[in-house]
């Protein structure tokens, strides 16, 4: 055991070192390993939870977005429909107005025509009666005497016939 002596081996020092190690082991376990490993574990759990939550949120967001999209499409459809209807209504109204106006115009024209016709007939009648008078007067002058009523009329009528 000369070699051990040469290295200065002392059982007490060996023991001291072993004791040192155990003291250090205890201290580090208490103050370093335990709290640090605990907090590492805690953080790991927290991160896992957060990731899970984030996934959930993402999913919900997507759902909401889809819902909004669907609603927007629906609304757009409705607006389009309303617009179409409004256009149709307007066209119908336009057509109706046109037809009415046409009818009105036709009515006015017809009325005008009727009026004109009536006037003309009236004028003709008047003219006729005047002419009869003229004929009677002329006959009186020519014949010189007044025929009886019957003859008179016959003559007048004949005259008119000839005239016309």
């Amino acid at each position: 055991m000369d070699i051990l002596n040469q290295f200065g081996i002392n059982p007490l020092l060996l023991a001291a070192q072993v004791v040192n190690f155990f003291i250090l082991l205890f201290i580090l376990k208490r103050f370093l390993y335990k709290p640090v490993l605990k907090v590492l574990e805690e953080r790991k759990k927290k991160i896992e939870d957060s990731l899970k939550n984030a996934e959930e949120i993402e999913r919900k967001l997507q759902e909401t977005n889809e819902k909004i999209d669907r609603m927007m499409v629906k609304t757009a459809d409705e607006i389009q429909k309303m617009h179409d209807e409004a256009k149709k209504d307007r066209d119908v109204l336009k057509e109706e107005g046109k037809a009415e106006a046409q009818q009105l115009a036709l009515q006015i024209i017809k009325k005008g025509e009727e009026q004109a016709k009536a006037e003309r007939e009236k004028m003709q009648e008047e003219l006729m009666s005047h002419m009869a008078e003229f004929v009677v007067a002329g006959m009186e002058k020519v014949i010189g005497k007044v025929l009886n009523e019957k003859a008179q009329r016959e003559i007048v009528e004949k005259g008119i016939k000839n005239l016309s």
């Binding site: 040192n20 003291i23 250090l24 201290i27 580090l28 103050f31 370093l32 709290p35 640090v36 605990k38 907090v39 805690e42 953080r43 927290k46």
Partner: peptide, 18 residues
Amino acid sequence: AMAVLTIVSIIATWRVKI
């Protein structure tokens, strides 16, 4: 060395924060 390690670990884990 033990003292150094002890002090460092106590400081490091004095108030463990998440």
